[in-house]
């Protein structure tokens, strides 16, 4: 299990095993913070940071963690990195901290981190685990940005705060509210799943 190549790790994290569309984990925050693209980007970066470093730490000490308390140790490690992110945002990006509000603290409940720590870092060397964290984080961030692109465009007429649709556009209030993310997420999952099936069929055809 030492030789997962970098390419394979990134392909898995971003596309094949994408946390949101394939594993359907971490969707809470995908609904909550995606009404503005900037919020989504910061949330994605924060999650990538926490996942990567939590996986690195878990992997480094995995041989010393008693098996029956490993979850406790993982939660401890994850919470440490979440607090670091929270302190950093409060100290140096107070506006972002205010915009994300309680969601920064709630990164700890994001299943992606725990899932990757338990499913990957526990059995793989530190460097691969670190890359896996980055890959999963990027996979998550891309989906968040895709959702927030639609929501911000239709809900505010802006992209990253820049006005793109002018006065003729009537903002869709529903896009600003969390439920709209369900519809967009549903469409994205639908699209991704049909792509997976197509790839699967082609692969089977090639082998037979």
């Amino acid at each position: 299990m030492t030789g997962d190549s970098t390419k394979k790790i990134f392909n898995k994290g971003i596309w094949e095993d994408n946390p949101i569309v394939r594993q359907i984990i971490g969707i809470c925050s995908a609904l909550a913070v995606t009404n503005l693209m900037l919020n989504s980007l910061i949330m994605g970066l924060a999650l990538t940071f926490v996942t990567a470093f939590s996986e690195l730490t878990v992997s480094l000490i995995r041989k010393y963690i008693p098996k029956h308390i490993r979850m406790m140790v993982q939660v401890l490690i994850i919470s440490v990195y979440v607090i670091i992110v929270d302190l950093f945002l409060k100290g140096y990006y107070p506006e972002m901290s205010r915009a994300l509000g309680p969601y920064v603290g709630l990164i700890i409940t994001n299943c992606i981190i725990m899932g990757r720590c338990e499913g990957y870092a526990q059995n793989n060397p530190p460097f691969n685990s670190f890359l896996d964290g980055i890959a999963s984080g990027i996979g998550y961030t891309i989906i968040l940005l895709a959702i927030s692109f639609v929501r911000e465009l239709l809900g505010f007429g802006t992209i990253f705060g820049f006005q793109v649709l002018s006065d003729w556009w009537t903002n869709w209030t529903i896009m600003v509210m969390p439920p709209s993310a369900f519809f967009i997420l549903g469409v994205i999952v639908w699209w991704a799943r049909s792509r997976y099936e197509k790839e699967e069929r082609e692969r089977r055809k090639a082998t037979s």
Partner: peptide
């Protein structure tokens, strides 16, 4: 193991908290 790892991370966070408290 639990005591040691908790103590280690608590000190780490206490240090960081101290460093950023002025800015906050």
């Amino acid at each position: 193991f639990m005591i040691l790892i908790t103590a280690f991370f608590t000190f780490l966070l206490a240090g960081l908290n101290h460093m950023t408290s002025d800015a906050i």
